[in-house]
């Protein structure tokens, strides 16, 4: 590993903005993940406050029902995929190598890549708020056909956003698995690992198993909307679809 051979002198990070763009250091990337998720937490929090402010009294006071639905949908997506998940990945980036005595993550360049996909994914998702059709408004469980035939045209951005964050999650998860399996310090057997490492090890396997299912579902949505397929319109498939959505987005993310 480059980091191991370059250790003749404890040189510090590069200077300027390019330090953060090009970094392969697990601590830098971990910090970026954490700040990113904090920004997303505040963004999703503002949306939640808009929702709660509208619900303060019966009657419609501040916003219209169509904007309300956009707010609840975006709040769910941003909090789960933008705040909670990246924060956990950020903590893993910082702490897993330190806890198992590894010099860095096993795949440092991929680590950089999996972080830098995220701002673009969420940029795409947030951008839909400023389109004429408005942001996705079908709930973060996106049941068809409300999320296909009856959806605003911005749903395509939502689908690509989910694809990108799926890629990011899978890369992050693979990185964690490989690090834990290969880079443990001598004597750090599996049953000596701290529990934080253990829980992440198991979560990473769940993510690898489930993210492709989620990606498959949104791909079916994409095909239905733009290429005239009918994956999600036949009755049996609706059920299957709901199951996919549930197993994909809900269960593993909550794991409870």
């Amino acid at each position: 590993m480059t980091t191991a051979t370059a250790s003749h002198d404890d040189h510090g990070p590069a200077k300027g903005i390019m330090r953060w763009v090009l970094t392969t250091n697990h601590k830098d990337i971990g910090s970026m993940y954490l700040w990113f998720s904090f920004i997303m937490l505040l963004t999703g929090g503002v949306m939640a406050l808009i929702v709660r402010a509208e619900l303060f009294q019966p009657g419609m006071q501040l916003i219209r029902p169509e904007f309300y639905n956009q707010m609840t949908t975006m709040h769910g997506l941003i909090m789960v995929f933008g705040a909670i998940m990246p924060a956990f990945v950020g903590l893993a980036n910082w702490m897993v190598p330190l806890m198992i005595g590894a010099p860095d993550m096993a795949l440092p360049r991929m680590n950089n890549w999996s972080f830098w996909i995220l701002p673009f994914a969420f940029g795409m998702l947030l951008f839909t708020l400023f389109t004429e059709a408005g942001a996705p408004n079908f709930g973060w469980t996106f049941y068809a056909p409300l999320s296909t035939t009856y959806a605003p045209s911005s749903v395509t951005y939502f689908i690509f956003g989910v694809h990108m964050m799926g890629i990011s999650s899978i890369m992050g998860a693979i990185n964690i698995i490989v690090t834990i399996l290969n880079l443990r310090a001598p004597g750090m057997t599996l049953m000596k690992m701290p529990l934080f490492v253990w829980t992440w090890f198991i979560t990473a396997y769940l993510l690898v198993a489930v993210m492709p299912v989620l990606a498959g579902v949104v791909t079916m949505m994409l095909m239905d909307i733009h290429f005239g397929t009918a994956f999600l319109t036949r009755q049996v498939v609706v059920i299957l679809y709901c199951s996919n959505t549930c197993s994909g987005s809900l269960v593993t993310l909550k794991c409870i």
């Binding site: 029902p65 169509e66 639905n69 408004n137 709930g139 049941y143 409300l146």
Partner: peptide, 10 residues
């Protein structure tokens, strides 16, 4: 009881 669009609450 299932989100069905803009007027779901109505």
């Amino acid at each position: 009881a299932e989100l069905c669009g803009v007027q779901h609450g109505f």
